[in-house]
């Protein structure tokens, strides 16, 4: 069963550069939604600011394109308000790991039931080529003329360490694999971080399609994603050592909403029935 993928086509003109890795992510996302038999009004895609963060404009679902770095908080608000919505966050490496780092940290801890697609091109695209948190140390950019002066952020190690319940890495050029992992992420009950390697054809001349293709390999069936220590070790593999693609780590544990007893087994908050006179019982303590 699948819904018509064309339902997810947006009328808005796309503004990404030709050849951008974002296209692969966009197509894979639509494919996943369709294959999960979802309808556009059942999904909400939320983003911050950046090229990746324009995604809500280019797919027909509910969308909220908020502030730079602030994709996760409105996603939390929306999910709490209406737990029936499939909430997906699509934002870049700068948005997620830089400006919004604190929200990433704490929403992993919450295990909020959302899917977080990080379009990780290891550079700032929209602001024209400055270093992002995942740009390699020493890489020369349009701002770091002598090269980046600190170590790159490792999102997968970070996420595994602080307790993320679903951690995966994909490559935007393999839409089949990517849409499979996105579907797994959406089906996962809890916070699913999918770090998607995505070439920036305009500003990142180091991490090109070829660069990724030469290094990336797929985790095979013998890999056990439930072993946290092994997952951690895998998450450290990078660059010339090879870049593992697939679900590095996965565990089932209570989601944030599971831990809100009055929301867990009841209707979504949006269906809450309340009239002012219901507050009567709360007046007693002031009498």
């Amino acid at each position: 069963m699948a819904t018509d993928i064309k339902l997810f086509d947006s009328k808005e003109e796309n503004s990404w550069c030709p050849g951008c890795g974002n296209f692969g992510i966009l197509n894979a996302l639509k494919k996943s939604l369709s294959e999960l038999d979802l309808l556009p009004h059942e999904v909400m895609i939320i983003s911050g600011i950046g090229q990746a963060a324009k995604t809500p404009h280019f797919v027909n679902t509910n969308g909220f394109n908020g502030l730079h770095g602030r994709a996760l908080p409105p996603a939390l608000g929306a999910k709490i308000a209406n737990k029936d919505l499939k909430v997906i966050v699509t934002s870049g490496d700068g948005d997620t790991y830089g400006e919004g780092g604190n929200h990433t940290l704490h929403n992993i801890r919450r295990n909020l039931d959302i899917t977080h697609l990080v379009h990780n091109n290891q550079i700032y695209g929209l602001t024209k080529g400055q270093a992002s948190p995942t740009t390699a140390e020493g890489q020369v950019t349009s701002m770091q003329f002598d090269g980046v002066r600190f170590e790159a952020f490792n999102p997968l190690s970070f996420a595994i360490t602080i307790g993320a319940s679903f951690v995966a890495r994909c490559f935007s050029a393999d839409q089949g694999h990517l849409s499979h992992i996105i579907k797994e992420g959406i089906k996962h009950k809890g916070y699913a971080l999918i770090d998607i390697l995505q070439p920036c054809v305009t500003f990142n001349k180091v991490n090109t399609y070829k660069w990724y293709k030469d290094r990336a390999y797929y985790l095979d069936d013998s890999y056990d994603p439930s072993n946290k220590m092994i997952a951690y070790e895998k998450s450290l593999e990078w660059g010339d050592d090879g870049i593992p693609l697939g679900i590095l780590y996965k565990e089932e544990k209570p989601t944030f909403i599971d831990r809100i007893p009055h929301l867990k087994d009841t209707k979504p908050l949006i269906k809450r029935k309340w009239k002012p006179t219901d507050a009567e019982k709360f007046l007693e303590e002031f009498r």
């Binding site: 608000g77 709490i80 949006i270």
Partner: peptide, 12 residues
Amino acid sequence: INMAIGSSFAGV
């Protein structure tokens, strides 16, 4: 505030 904006956008 961004959480409250998100939940308000979602209708609560």
